[in-house]
């Protein structure tokens, strides 16, 4: 297993370099102009000077190599300096965002907490809801519970979050006035009161996203349970006189979870990608909002860095899912 993991990690390096080049080319060839959003009153020659000062005058391969140097050499060195208090020295230019003119990595670090709190929490909540629903739906297939579960899943699947988000804002913020409609990213949890406020402002975005996540995962769980419930080993277990509870929750559930765990692991990178629409609707201003604002503003270094980090996470969690599969299912061996 270890050699397999190492082999996969080594293979990931050329893949990631290819991905970074493709992202860079895609962004660069797409028509986007960082000065396009400026007011009409700013004359064309000033716009040209702004573009030059952003380095857009250099040829494409120089800009790509510069980004590679900044991202793969300068940023890690900078991180080492910060973490261990070393002084490596040298004048290193970091990856700078065009919109804010500040280091992209600092922006990402700043955005990470609210994204992990809101989107991450919604994933956890979604999983916690989905598993029992999937289990009961499968065990009592075609019962009213299964029907309702199927209906809710279909709603969660098919109704987009920009609709459910605005709907819950109108109901719970405007009509009832229970929760704030705008997320306060500067809020610090210091005592019980502030913790309650944090819960209040997280409820709506977490609920909207959790519904979406739960819909997906509960269907997987249900299908996987159904596959296993008809297996011979289940009949054997029952024939041995085991309690129904043990049969379902120990024998069937453990085997059914194997593919579901993989699906859950593969979904983790999405948390870091943020939920672009939900973050916009609730003004959470996390990584998803950073990405969309950067795309709108033609801020190529930020888009490039963010999408590349997402690519790294996706490759990493693919590997995690494969390894987990091997750990959970003794029938699967990679070496």
């Amino acid at each position: 297993m270890l050699t397999y993991t190492i082999r996969r990690l080594l293979l990931a390096i050329p893949t990631l370099i290819a991905i970074s080049l493709i992202i860079f080319l895609l962004l660069d060839l797409a028509p986007s102009d960082p000065t396009a959003n400026l007011p009409l009153t700013i004359p064309p020659d000033v716009r040209e000077k702004i573009r030059q000062s952003l380095g857009l005058g250099d040829p494409i391969y120089i800009r790509y190599l510069l980004w590679c140097k900044q991202f793969f050499v300068n940023e890690p060195l900078n991180m080492l300096e910060q973490w261990f208090g070393w002084d490596i020295g040298g004048d290193r230019l970091r990856v700078l965002s065009w919109q804010t003119r500040s280091p992209v990595v600092d922006l990402i670090v700043q955005r990470m907490p609210q994204t992990l709190w809101v989107v991450g929490m919604s994933y956890v909540v979604g999983v916690l809801i989905a598993l029992p629903i999937g289990i009961i739906s499968a065990y009592r297939q075609y019962s009213w519970f299964d029907q309702v579960g199927t209906f809710v899943s279909m709603v969660g699947f098919s109704v987009p979050t920009f609709f459910t988000g605005v709907l819950v804002i109108v109901i719970f913020s405007v009509w009832l006035g229970w929760f704030p409609s705008i997320y306060d990213t500067t809020h610090q949890v210091t005592d019980w009161q502030s913790f309650l406020f944090q819960i209040k402002q997280m409820i709506m975005p977490v609920a909207v996203l959790a519904l979406f996540n739960a819909a997906q995962i509960s269907r997987f769980m249900r299908a996987s349970m159904l596959d296993n419930l008809n297996q011979d080993y289940v009949r054997t277990a029952r024939a041995k006189g085991m309690r129904e509870r043990t049969v379902v929750l120990v024998h069937v559930l453990r085997n059914s979870l194997i593919p579901v765990v993989t699906v859950i692991a593969l979904g983790v990178p999405q948390i870091f990608g943020g939920a672009i629409i939900t973050e916009q609707v609730f003004k959470v201003n996390g990584l998803g909002q950073l990405l969309i604002i950067s795309i709108q503003g033609g801020d190529l270094p930020t888009v490039q860095t963010l999408t590349f980090i997402f690519a790294v996470l996706i490759i990493l969690f693919n590997l995690v899912a494969d390894v987990l599969y091997g750990v959970l299912d003794p029938r699967i061996r990679y070496d």
Partner: peptide, 16 residues
């Protein structure tokens, strides 16, 4: 605070 959309900003001042 920045971000969101026009309708949401209007809602935050005029409705909530």
């Amino acid at each position: 605070k920045g971000g969101g959309d026009t309708a949401a900003a209007g809602r935050a001042v005029l409705e909530t």
